[in-house]
Computed example of a mutant assay.
Amino acid sequence: MSLVSSTLDMELQFNAALYSRYANAIEANPEDYDALYNWALESADNVSPDSSSPSKDALLEEACKKYDEATRLCPTLHDAYYNWAIAISDRAKMRGRTKEAEELWKQATKNYEKAVQLNWNTPQALNNWGLALQELSAIVPAREKQTIVKTAISKFRAAIQLQFDFHRAIYNLGTVLYGLAEDTSRTGGTVNGNEVSPDELYSQSAIYIAAAHALKPNYSVYTSALKLVRSMVSTHFAQDYLLPLPYLKVGYLTAPPAGNSIVPHSEWRRSQFVLNHEGLQQIHNVEQRRMSRNLSNSGDAVKLNRSMIKVNVPDIVSLSACADLTLPPGAGLCIDTIHGPVFLVADSWDSLDGWLDAIRLVYTIFARGKIEVLAGIITG
């Protein structure tokens, strides 16, 4: 007997036993949604992941029917919607980039949405929802793609906000931003009329990929992705890396005078800030940044830094968006530290999301004891 026929015989025996066990349970109680759900779950789990045969698709389709019936009997069964979406996704993967696959991916996203609606504290469901949207975006007409990609970005970001060290969602967010950068670069356009250049998107992508690698440095896929963004030439930063080395992020925030946030709005100033593995630092201009680097071990540098806002990573207690009438108009940011709160204002709410994510990721990497890995990425 060949290995293939032996494996097939084992699958048939397993399915026969499964059918007998659950069919008897449902015959005794047709309203037993738990039996239907478990039957579907075990059937789908028994399908070989390497198979692409019609029998695999048929087994998955039968599992989907049972998930459908289980959720009809119990509309709040969020785990059934989640695993139903996984089974639909597996069916979609077997069909490549076809119209049939497009319809299946749409069904999968709807079921992930239902699962999240019933149980919002599910980062894995949000991550899978984002992946399904990413797959769907590769099939739909070009005019629909950007909207779907932006929705996928929001799902990955929501997953990270629920679980800051969710490295798979962090990496997936990096890859979807990288794909958006590629598309934007190819078309020569911007995102929905906003001034988001391909280089800015590439840089955002690199932040998430670097963070995923720092959290899981032994994952080969993260290592390969980091090598890719290292090899990309950034015209925006005029260097051979998509991060603004020796920093993780560089951008603009509106800030009050250092140490005095209770001042009129007219005294707040928009200035440059940099983020690295040590913390967030205000830089008034390029010349002062150069002076700070050159005089890092001198008293002059200490004097210079006293006039600038600096937040060290170990001092951070919490981080949040805020809307407060005491702040200038815009997207408010509150960094609560052991020394008291630091208030800043981002240029836009989209810009604020980027700052929130980047600072949270650095703090999470620090809290997980991986800050030296991140330091190696952005300083070496």
Rank of each mutant, 00 (worst) to 15 (best):
2 S>F: 07
7 T>D: 09
7 T>H: 10
10 M>A: 14
12 L>Q: 13
15 N>G: 00
18 L>H: 01
22 Y>D: 00
24 N>A: 15
29 N>D: 15
33 Y>C: 10
33 Y>F: 15
38 N>Y: 15
41 L>C: 03
42 E>F: 09
43 S>I: 09
44 A>W: 02
44 A>T: 02
46 N>H: 15
46 N>V: 01
49 P>Q: 06
56 K>I: 06
58 A>G: 03
59 L>N: 04
60 L>C: 03
63 A>T: 01
70 A>I: 04
73 L>E: 07
77 L>H: 15
78 H>L: 02
80 A>H: 02
80 A>G: 03
86 I>R: 11
89 S>E: 10
95 R>T: 06
96 G>A: 04
97 R>S: 13
97 R>K: 14
97 R>E: 14
99 K>P: 01
100 E>W: 06
103 E>H: 11
107 Q>L: 12
109 T>E: 12
110 K>F: 10
111 N>R: 12
113 E>C: 05
113 E>S: 11
117 Q>T: 02
122 T>Q: 14
128 N>Q: 06
135 E>Q: 14
138 A>C: 00
138 A>D: 02
143 R>W: 04
143 R>F: 07
147 T>G: 05
148 I>F: 09
148 I>Q: 07
152 A>I: 08
153 I>E: 14
154 S>H: 07
154 S>E: 13
155 K>S: 11
155 K>H: 15
157 R>V: 06
161 Q>Y: 13
162 L>Q: 15
166 F>D: 08
168 R>K: 13
183 D>A: 14
186 R>G: 02
191 V>A: 04
196 V>M: 12
203 S>G: 08
204 Q>R: 15
206 A>H: 08
209 I>V: 14
213 H>A: 13
215 L>M: 08
217 P>S: 05
220 S>D: 09
235 T>H: 08
246 P>Y: 04
252 Y>V: 11
252 Y>Q: 10
252 Y>P: 01
259 G>E: 01
262 I>P: 00
265 H>A: 03
270 R>E: 15
277 H>M: 03
278 E>G: 05
281 Q>T: 13
284 H>N: 11
296 S>A: 12
298 S>T: 15
300 D>E: 12
303 K>C: 04
309 I>A: 02
310 K>L: 04
312 N>P: 03
315 D>T: 15
325 L>F: 05
325 L>I: 07
330 G>H: 07
333 L>C: 11
339 H>Q: 11
340 G>N: 01
342 V>Y: 00
344 L>M: 10
345 V>C: 03
348 S>I: 00
350 D>W: 02
356 L>Y: 10
358 A>Q: 07
360 R>K: 13
364 T>K: 11
371 I>D: 05
372 E>Y: 10
375 A>S: 13
378 I>V: 15
